[in-house]
Design a protein around this nucleic acid. Structure first.
Length: 199
DNA sequence: TAAACGATCTGCT
DNA sequence: GCAGATCGTTTAT
């Protein structure tokens, strides 16, 4: 295994959604493809709260498609949107309908593999958006519902010591409801954000 | 079964 | 920076 610390346990995801979103910045998202680990540091996330959050997919209740968003903490929720996919980690308790959207990572491991999967050579545009990073890691609907704390193919790990990051809260992107809530978290120094934050 | 709508990306200007 | 592409899911006939 790579030198990137311990994998996050179920207890990590069981915390308050907003806190989990913030704490995921600087963690390592990894995916095993053909026996090789690919992935990088998480630099951008967004919190989607339970049924009270009108921007959340869970707001209108459970449907066959969003069922895994209501699963136990640590469940992977992959949602299709605009003919692409987004990757979320379910938080809090089973049935709550909260999740954290992982919007961008800084490519570190298996960069050549990711370039092939994305058909994209520009490092800046490799994983700096929710659908981009899914494609770079080869994640699709087949992975929906798996258990992050125990899965063999996809995992999030805590590197322990890592470079210092300046974490900033900002408004969420691309939604039409509840726009003004500060539920987006980014590593303000990163070059791999889907959108820059105002200084 | 038809129509509308996105938690978006890309290419071109 | 902006318009167009894209397609599964949901909601309406």
């Amino acid at each position: 295994m790579l030198e990137c610390g311990e994998r996050l346990a179920k207890e990590f995801y069981a915390g308050d959604t907003k806190s989990v979103a913030r704490d995921l910045i600087g963690k390592a998202l990894l995916r095993k493809i053909e026996n090789e680990w690919v992935g990088g540091w998480i630099v951008e996330t967004e919190a989607y709260l339970a049924t009270r959050d009108p921007a959340s997919h869970s707001a209108r209740g459970k449907t066959p498609c969003n069922a895994s968003m209501f699963g136990p903490a640590g469940t992977l929720y992959v949602y299709p949107i605009h003919a692409k996919y987004c990757l979320n980690a379910v938080t809090e308790v089973e049935g709550a309908g909260c999740a954290v959207l992982i919007r961008a990572i800084e490519p570190v491991w298996g960069i050549e593999m990711m370039k092939d999967l994305r058909i994209q050579q520009d490092l800046r545009r490799l994983t700096s958006g929710p659908a981009m990073l899914c494609q770079a890691l080869g994640v699709d609907r087949n992975h929906d519902g798996l258990d992050l704390p125990t899965d063999d193919e996809i995992t999030i790990r805590n590197p322990g010591e890592s470079k210092k990051r300046r974490i900033v809260a900002a408004k969420r992107i691309g939604i039409s409801k509840a726009k003004d809530r500060l539920l987006r978290f980014v590593d303000a120094e990163s070059d791999f954000l889907s959108r820059r934050v105002a200084k």
